[in-house]
Nucleic acid binder design. Sequence first.
DNA 1: GAGACGACTTAGCATAATCATA
DNA 2: TATGATTATGCTAAGTCGTCTC
Length: 600
Amino acid sequence: MVSSSCLPVAHTYMLFISALMSYFCGIIEFLIGWCYFLDDSRWEEERYTDGVKWKFLEHKGPVFAPPYEPLPSNVKFYYDGKPMKLSPEAEEVATFFSKMLDHEYTTKDIFRKNFFKDWRKEMTSEEKAKITDLKKCNFTEMSEYFKGLSEARKAMTKEQKLKIKEENERLLQEYGFCIMDNHRERIANFRIEPPGLFRGRGDHPKMGMLKRRIRPQDIIINCSKNSKHPEPPPGTKWKEVRHDNKVTWLVSWTENIQGSIKYIMLNPSSRIKGEKDWQKYETARRLKKCVDRIRAQYREDWKSKEMRVRQRAVAIYFIDKLALRAGNEKEEGETADTVGCCSLRVEHIKLYPENEGQEYVVEFDFLGKDSIRYYNKVPVEKRVFKNLQLFMENKEPDDDLFDRLNTSVLNKHLQELMDGLSAKVFRTYNASITLQQQLKEALENTAASKILSYNRANRAVAILCNHQRAPPKTFEKSMQNLQAKIDAKRDQLANAKRDLKAAKADAKGLRDDKSKKTVETKRKAVQRIEEQLMKLEVQATDREENKQIALGTSKLNYLDPRISVAWCKKWGIPIEKIYNKTQREKFAWAIDMAEKDFEF
DNA sequence: GAGACGACTTAGCATAATCATA
DNA sequence: TATGATTATGCTAAGTCGTCTC
């Protein structure tokens, strides 16, 4: 819990008011709730014990995907060059494919094979008998039709767009919020995922499979007994209505691709998510206090007589030093072949006793989460190197590097070293401590360069955590545009400087007030242009350095927001320069409680 | 201890909304 | 005011990790 000194004045004041009015027993509960609504200091509310997440939960249930609208009769599907009217079920699935025609997915064999197999399941027996080859299917007319619709949407009048916006807002107000205990909370994803073709990442064996439509009878509702239960659409029933207050979800269903459960949960701005987020960073701060001991321990364990201990110790070293993920085992053939630390295979690393002037270099090359490539060459301690050589001895490339280790064993060990410690805490800790250190080291002075140095620090973390993105499609062009702007600004500056020089010469000869004033004006103009130029140059550097790096993920999930808030307060940088609206909402708890002297 | 499962966090991409500029 | 660029938001896949069962 936060110390009472952190409580905002407004909150204290409201509590005082409510204390004064406490004899109005009937309204006291309402008042407290009202106070929390107003001052947003709900992070300081008492927490439940025994895994209870809430006492009261009421919501309106999910919003279902709109029903399928059959194609107009002039839009045709062709098989083997001839138009063919499809049954509504088969047609719907065909539209999913046609909407993706421009995407690389539809050129991939696995995607096409999976799609065709599932599509055929939706066909009538006549259709099934006729449509036997995907290559003979022509979806272009359908594809053009949907492109047309999307163009039409873009070309809508202001009034039409406004109408849609209003309808969305109405839906949001009705379904986008719930009441959890005393608060009206925003729901994250109140719309059920529409049917479509599964888009797995990387070489996913199930890409292209049909993601089926979710119906009310697939839905489990979770709410409190004494709440007004959400109504299923007329003529339908929920699969189940349950009242489990040990979980935070409001709605769940089982998806058909992997058979996993999907949930509707609250928005990151909610009390329940904010508190959890805060807790996560507090655990990472506890790791800071004992990380030296843990590091000494795993270094000691590199020498252990037991192979499993040595493997564990080297794995923790990687997780700590390189911010690798834990690496759970995955079911073969069910998902893309990706790995993390514990699931690394021999083929994923190469050992160099010497490389480019460095000793004991390990080269990592593997696909991690979301099939993002991790490539890194790092020098390691001799003992680690020798251990790795040993772990790889007499193994095939596709054998596990750490054959005596899995995430369960690893996390059990970490839990023993520190309460609440698991592999992912190292990522949070190393990310946050890196940001804090880098911000301390940055010496820039102006607001613009301060923000650049913040972005640099953010970038260092993104690189550590290997958060990559595809370079934006418009990157080259936008870079050229920016360069053109910089060139123009340079010319402008040269002109302004020449003007200033001339004005100075005039003033020297004339020695009157008017020409002195002119010099001053010209001087200011030069100054202004210099500042503008610097700003542009900073922007160009920032953009270039960010080409393939995604900053958002670390900002949102790994960097203790209190570090950023404190930094903003210390240097008088508006928080809006660092966090946009959504981020400010998510980090409201940190903005509320962090002072300029906050230390991670 | 293995394996399945459930609940939750973390992730990149697509699209919508907003902003800047001609 | 239209258009293109940029940023914010939405979407949902893919991880982590604890618990339960055998």
